[in-house]
């Protein structure tokens, strides 16, 4: 699955500019707990989350995230979007809940990351 497929499926809005939508999305993980995210992502992973603070972007300095999807219409503040822009980290926001988003992507064949 490509990032563009994720955007279409989740009817998502892309919050950063200049990132490739053709990048491959091999797997996904969803959580609102930083420690869980750290522990469970061992490969390049699409992250679904409701956390919108600075530390969710900081996570991408520690682990390999393909992109971050904010669920249930959440949108981080401008300075946080800039942090992602500086890192060329794709940020998406979708109106769907964590459960709906996960189900949509899972049904399209996007596998869970290996934990």
């Amino acid at each position: 699955m490509k990032l563009s497929d994720v955007i279409t499926a989740l009817e998502a809005e892309l919050l950063v500019t200049g990132v490739s939508l053709e990048i491959d999305v091999p797997c996904a993980f969803g959580s609102d707990l930083i420690s869980d995210i750290l522990m469970c992502t061992k490969e390049s992973t699409l992250l679904l989350t409701g956390i919108t603070n600075h530390q969710i972007i900081r996570l991408s300095d520690m682990i390999d995230l393909t992109a971050i999807v904010f669920v249930r219409g959440k949108k981080p503040s401008e300075d946080i979007i800039k942090m992602a822009q500086d890192r060329e980290m794709p940020l998406l926001t979708t109106k769907f809940t964590m459960y709906q988003s996960s189900g949509i992507l899972y049904n399209l064949g996007l596998r869970s990351c290996k934990i």
């Binding site: 707990l33 930083i34 420690s35 869980d36 522990m39 989350t49 603070n53 530390q55």
Partner: peptide, 15 residues
């Protein structure tokens, strides 16, 4: 509320 405090910090460090 910021996503911390799950009580997994030290176990994660050990791991």
């Amino acid at each position: 509320e910021m996503g911390f405090g799950a009580g997994l910090g030290l176990p994660n460090i050990k791991k």
